[in-house]
Design a protein around this nucleic acid. Structure first.
Length: 520
RNA sequence: GGCGGCGUAGCCAAGAGGCAAGGCAGGGGUCUGCAAAACCCCCAUUCCCCGGUUCGAAUCCGGGCGCCGCCUCCA
């Protein structure tokens, strides 16, 4: 297969990915400032780079993934002061939430998650060197980077210093020589966290942390630097300026990858616009696969509009994916051993084609939409095969090897996108509703339900279904249909197959949540 | 105003010179006690508009129109 090609913001072109060290990929991603709960926008970034990482690994690269956590920041200080607690109470809380969200969404943990507050000495060293080399200057307890000293300033974002001069604003209390100069070090204000430095007590500016930490863990000229496209200017521009001035070399990073924003009703999702979907809110309503599918269904460099309908569509699509895996499982369970045959070979061939199409799409700047199409084509092939077995037109044993291959390929390729395609994780409320339903049915329809229902969801549903089968055996279809309807209300979908009833937790339908979506 | 991007069926979305992937929704059929799922068939002569280049354009060029992001903290 061909090489991976990625869009590089630095050149605005799609380029072949050639790492600094053959076979390895050093990846640095800008993480969140932990001053508040994360929203879907943060997850889009995390997921975009999780897919990149998984794909690099799938292609055989040995990936070193570093993602920072910004825990020194004005908004954190402000929040802590509002709550009357130390800043680390605030940062610990939101770091915890963030990690929990990542884990829930099946996002691989970065190998290193450096925090700004723990890398002050590294930043101080860098700032000292920048002053010595004439790229930074001291003013009234602050230290600023002098953008006029670097002819290449603006190369990432396409900014021109002259134009920046007009637009940039200087806050009162700042002592910049040029409006586009940015703070490397800020003198301490009363009541703020601060550290000792050659310039007096203070704290680092925002941009310097990513330079210091990426250089520390990945070294100059590392492979990929990523983040949201709203970070291109000024954050990433400034990182480049500092790092290249500091080392006297370029490039700081070889490829700059930026994900586009999540939109709500035509506007960027953000805290300040109050139009965000809190991650935990979305997670309560939709399984991780559904959220990941939604975000993967659009190319990472294109803004994605999210609304309720979109998640519902995604939930149905995920159900189709899961259904194919379940049908394959049924065939595999039925055939003790596979003897194979032409149909089996045909399916195995389809799996191979899907793999190739998938890879070609992903190689093309991570075209996840195209990659999903390849997966769905294999789903259709798999369903055709399992459908024949279900209808008795084909022998399970003769299809078994191909079905097993297709199933494994489905899981593997979907796994690169981060989709699990397992049983939907059980919402606690679903289990609760099913338990209530079992109890209610026992009361209402005694003869059908005599023994004790079990405890876990599996046992409870089996118990209800067994009672329903007794009704069906007596041709009491109105009772059977009523039970099926009530299970659906509880979030369980029942399908009567020739081999008996099959059930699954609904991915979306029947799970209309009480909480609202966007709060705007 | 400067920089960047987007506009493809009812909705979502790939495709970037060779004749429109995929998902959701919809219509018809098979299967089913009924449903659901699955399967089969149908669903864009056309890709915001107008010119141009070409044997050939959704794809390239020119000009419009509409929308979005960044230029301030932001994933």
């Amino acid at each position: 297969m061909g090489p991976l090609r990625l869009h590089n913001t630095l050149t605005k072109k799609i380029e072949e990915f050639v790492p600094r060290d053959s076979g390895k990929a050093a990846l640095y991603v800008c993480g969140p400032t932990v001053y508040d709960s994360s929203h879907l926008g943060h997850m889009r970034a995390a997921i975009a780079f999780d897919v990149l990482r998984r794909y690099l690994e799938w292609k055989g690269f040995q990936v070193m993934h570093v993602q920072n956590l910004t825990d020194v920041d004005d908004r954190i200080i402000q929040r802590a002061q509002n709550e009357g607690v130390p800043t680390d109470v605030v940062t610990e809380r939101y770091i915890g939430e963030y990690r929990q969200a990542l884990q829930a969404l099946n996002i691989l943990q970065p190998h290193i998650e450096p925090r700004a507050s723990r890398h002050i000495p590294e930043m101080v060293e860098m700032i000292k060197a920048l002053i010595e080399r004439g790229y930074a200057y001291y003013a009234e307890g602050d230290v600023y980077f002098d953008v006029t000293k670097l002819s290449a300033y603006g190369k990432l974002s396409g900014r021109v210093l002259e134009e920046l001069k007009a637009g940039a604003r200087v806050e009162p209390g700042e002592f910049k020589r040029h409006p586009a100069d940015f703070a490397l070090w800020k003198r301490a204000k009363p009541g703020e966290p601060n550290w000792e430095s050659p310039w007096g007590r203070g704290r680092p500016g925002w941009h310097i942390e990513c330079s210091a930490m990426s250089l520390k863990y990945l070294g100059m000229g590392f492979d990929i630097h990523g983040g949201g496209d709203d970070l291109i200017f000024p954050h990433h521009e400034n990182e480049i300026a500092q790092s290249e001035a500091y080392t006297g070399r370029e490039p700081f990073a070889r490829y700059w990858i930026h994900n586009a924003m999540v939109m709500v009703r035509g506007e960027k999702m953000s805290k300040s616009l109050h139009n965000y979907f809190a991650v935990m809110d979305a997670m309560r309503r939709y399984p991780a696969d559904v959220i990941r599918y939604t975000l993967a269904s659009v190319h990472y460099r294109k803004p994605i509009e999210v609304d309720e309908e979109r998640f519902v569509d995604a939930a149905r699509a995920v159900d189709r994916l899961r259904g194919a895996v379940a049908s394959a499982d049924a065939v595999i369970a039925r055939a003790k051993s596979g003897i194979g045959g032409p149909a089996s070979q045909h399916l195995a061939g389809a799996a191979q084609r899907a793999r190739e199409t998938f890879e070609a799409a992903m190689d093309d700047d991570l075209n996840t939409a195209g990659a999903l199409a390849a997966i769905f084509n294999l789903v259709a092939e798999t369903n055709r095969a399992t459908d024949e077995v279900a209808k008795g037109q084909s022998d399970a044993a003769q299809l078994q090897p191909g079905v097993a291959t297709a199933r494994a390929t489905l899981k593997e390729l979907a796994g690169v996108i981060g989709l699990v395609l397992g049983e939907a994780p059980v919402d606690a409320r679903v289990a609760e509703r099913v338990r209530d339903l079992a109890a209610a049915l026992r009361r209402e329809a005694g003869p059908l339900f005599t023994d004790h229902p079990g405890q876990n969801l599996d046992e409870l549903v089996s118990y209800i279904l067994a009672g329903r089968e007794r009704a069906r055996a007596k041709k009491d279809f109105s009772t059977a249909d009523r039970i099926r309807g009530r299970l659906a209300e509880a979030g369980i979908v029942v399908e009567d197959l020739p081999t008996g009833p099959r059930w699954r937790v609904a991915a979306a339908d029947g799970l209309r949540p009480p909480t609202g979506g966007a709060d705007a």
